[in-house]
Design a protein around this nucleic acid. Structure first.
Length: 446
DNA sequence: TTTTGAGTTGTTCGA
DNA sequence: GTCGAACAACTCAAA
């Protein structure tokens, strides 16, 4: 047994022991399993804020994960540095014969994993990778002609058919959402000596005071999700995004929970698969519009305007309350995300990529595929075929979704006082300007 | 191949 | 206040 070496399970964005597909496969690989996690220097060095709360969240999470693995008699090796240097070292030092991890289809991750795959091949180490982060991914839901969907509704219909294709379990839940076992007496974790978790300080960060949402979501919230989710002052959304991002909860578990309770909630999980699939098949969306003619739009890109938007000083209270909530907490209600994104792109004519980057910096639940998809949708250049003249009216949105100014007052205390600025641009004027500039941009591409 | 129906989350106008 | 049509003609998916 000892001569056969060990299995390595590399945690990345699946930071849990329960219902973890790749980990389950590693634990049934026939060799003792050692876990590892790397605080990736490439990613961390690109973060702008020393008190980035996502690094605190990661650090807390890794601490908990290590305790859980310790309690099972195993080890989680935790390092800070470059995966392309650290993984080969770990493979060598711990006599690794098999490497297991879960798919990560973001562009950087694909390149990182390709390097590791080539290294493993050169050293006769087996490498196994599994779907865990999504319910259906890559080529699992395609049109009849074999090409990927680019419209959500037919994709969601095909997705739901596929979910039920494998049948239901005895409790009436799709088998495709079954959990992978994490507890079994014969699962062989391995205890080895390893160094301590690097401190936040040693990686150049300080602890954040921001609060992190719980991993659980009430049944009543899911049941009422369809009716409540559009009202930013209600606690109508789950705030599970950060946990889906880092895999601190299982997507299958939450989908199973929502399955009989709320189609609307389930649809949101399908959107997540949809945008990940779009990123996989159309990687150009990272650098430009999904619909390339929209790259011809002549954005104003006024830096003072952008600064006002970032600070929540536009003079439109729903926009400003949203930005204040984002800046203060790292979270913004979904309805308000649409309003601020529409305002930045359509009213201010600032390139959606500026907004995308700001959200990437600030959102605790930031996810490349979903954030990019959402911004392209807001700008009108994305997969949604709806016409671009759909421009949100920030005042009308306030009347509909925050009629008593409850949300606005909780994030914008000076609203209504003399110190609150007047609207930075007139809505009717901005709307006409937007229609004209979009039209001209699209004509230019013909 | 051609045709047909439909498209996450909207707004404005005029009856 | 409420309701349907227009916005401007586009793109996609499936028959």
């Amino acid at each position: 047994m000892t001569n056969q070496g060990n299995t390595l399970f590399w945690f990345r964005r699946d930071l849990r022991v329960q219902d973890n597909h790749g980990l389950y496969r590693a634990l049934t690989s026939g060799l003792p399993v050692i876990g590892c996690f790397i605080f990736d220097e490439h990613i961390l060095s690109s973060l702008e804020d020393k008190d980035d709360a996502r690094v605190t969240f990661l650090h807390d999470t890794i601490h908990d994960l290590q305790e859980q693995i310790d309690a099972r008699g195993g080890t989680l090796i935790v390092e800070y540095g470059k995966p392309e240097e650290l993984i080969p070292r770990i493979l060598d030092e711990y006599h690794i014969q098999k490497v297991y991890f879960n798919h990560d289809d973001e562009p950087y991750a694909l390149q990182r994993d390709q390097f590791i795959a080539e290294h493993c091949q050169r050293h006769q180490i087996s490498l196994y990778s599994f779907k865990d982060h999504l319910i259906f991914e890559r080529d699992e839901v395609l049109k009849k002609d074999g090409l990927p969907y680019t419209v959500f509704t037919p994709y969601a219909n095909a997705w739901k058919n596929r979910l039920e294709l494998a049948g239901l379990d005895q409790d009436g839940y799709p088998l495709a959402l079954s959990a992978f076992p994490s507890e079994h007496p014969s699962y062989p974790w391995k205890k080895v000596n390893s160094s301590r978790i690097p401190s936040l300080d040693s990686m150049g960060f300080v602890a954040s005071e921001k609060e992190f949402p719980p991993r659980e979501v009430k049944t009543s919230l899911i049941r009422q999700y369809g009716d409540q989710r559009d009202y930013p002052s209600a606690q109508g959304t789950s705030r599970l995004g950060i946990h889906f991002r880092f895999g601190t909860i299982s997507i299958r578990e939450k989908a199973r929970k929502a399955y009989h309770l709320s189609q609307t909630f389930l649809n949101e999980l399908i959107w997540r698969d949809f945008y990940a699939m779009i990123l996989h098949h159309f990687p150009h969306v990272v650098n430009g519009a999904f619909r390339t003619p929209y790259d011809q739009i002549e954005w104003r890109n006024d830096e003072d305007d952008f600064r006002k938007w970032c600070m929540g000083m536009t003079g439109y209270p729903l926009v400003d309350a949203g930005m204040r909530q984002l800046n203060a907490t790292g979270f913004m209600h979904n309805r308000v995300r649409m309003v601020v994104a529409s305002f930045l792109t359509k009213h201010l004519l600032i390139n959606w990529q500026w907004g995308e980057a700001y959200f990437a910096r600030k959102l605790l639940d930031y996810d490349l595929a979903s954030n990019n998809g959402g911004w392209q949708w807001a700008a009108g250049c994305g997969t949604d075929a709806a016409p671009y003249f759909r421009i949100f009216n920030p005042d009308a949105q306030q009347k509909k979704f925050d009629p008593k100014f409850t949300y606005i007052q909780s994030w914008l205390p000076e609203w209504g006082s003399a110190s609150y600025p007047p609207p930075m641009v007139d809505h009717a004027f901005a709307r006409q300007r937007c229609l004209k500039v979009y039209q001209e941009g699209l004509n230019r591409s013909k």
